[in-house]
Simulated assay, not measured.
Amino acid sequence: MSTLNTATATPFTAAHGSATWRLVRAELTLSVRDKVGPLWGVGCPLVVLVILGGVPALREPVATGGGMTIFDLYVPVLILFNLAILALTALPATLAGYRENGVLRRMQTTPVGPARVLTAQLAANFATALVAMALFLAVAGLGFGVDLPQNLAGFAVAWLLAAAALLSVGLLVTALAPGRGPAAAIGTVLFFPMMFFAGLWVPVAYMPPVLQTISHYTPLGAGMRAFEEAYLGQFPSAVPLLTLAAYALGCAVAAVRWFRWQ
């Protein structure tokens, strides 16, 4: 009996793994074909990076920046901008569109389940984010002379957790929104406050103490703090990393729990 159970369990597990991988491959193919992820997650932030890099006033050294320019200080913010626009614009538009068009209703009749659907979206958008981050650092370094983070290992950990946190927030929005319109509205409402607390308009160091404290416990604020520490040569401290991990885990679990097929 135990031999039979083992023999039966192995193909079952393999089938489940292959189903997840097929979903991931399909979403990667659709993302490239539909150009939603590459356009919003790579093209748009990269254009902003090039435009800001070409502004002479932003190329002036900051008095307290140790020789760094304003543009140098904005590169980590723009990397977070890339993650935010991908997570809160491209990802919700895709999966909410599936729900709106009845694709998810048909998938509900299969053994796929919410976790696999969301995992496929997470993997496809993570791949896009990884390509975008590599292009960002390459263009900033080769085109505008911006140095790489001094602590590359710390930056890698911070980026992985920031990507997981932001994409999980996007998955939660996607899991709950009934269609593209509501998904876009929720994503927009979240996007601008998050970018404010990341320091896109006002550097976090120049915010009042209360806003600085709030910033440190938002996904982008925690990501920015971890990035800054990595750029200065330190391994990011525990508070921003744990904050990002908490957002990633909490939002991912909530997205699976409250996922709507229609």
Rank of each mutant, 00 (worst) to 15 (best):
M1Q: 12
S2C: 00
T3E: 14
T6D: 14
T8F: 12
P11E: 12
F12D: 13
T13W: 12
A15W: 09
T20A: 15
A26P: 00
L28M: 14
K35F: 13
K35R: 15
G43C: 08
L46G: 02
G53M: 07
P56R: 14
P61Y: 10
A63N: 10
A63T: 14
T64W: 07
G65M: 09
M68D: 05
I70F: 13
I70P: 01
D72Y: 02
L73Y: 08
L73S: 07
V77D: 00
L83C: 08
L83H: 04
A87Q: 00
L88I: 02
L95N: 02
A96E: 00
R105M: 11
R106H: 11
M107G: 02
M107L: 15
T119D: 03
T119L: 12
L122V: 05
A124I: 01
A124M: 08
A127E: 06
L130M: 14
V131E: 05
A134T: 14
A134I: 13
F136A: 08
G143D: 11
F144P: 02
D147Q: 15
Q150A: 15
N151G: 10
L152N: 12
A156W: 07
L161W: 02
L161T: 04
A162K: 01
L171S: 06
V173T: 07
T174Y: 06
A175L: 07
P178L: 08
R180K: 14
F196G: 02
A198R: 01
G199W: 04
V204D: 03
Y206S: 13
P209I: 08
L211K: 06
T213N: 09
Y217V: 11
T218M: 12
L220V: 09
G223R: 03
A226K: 03
Q234A: 15
A238F: 12
V239G: 00
L249D: 00
C251I: 03
V253R: 11
V253N: 10
V256W: 04
W258F: 15
F259K: 04
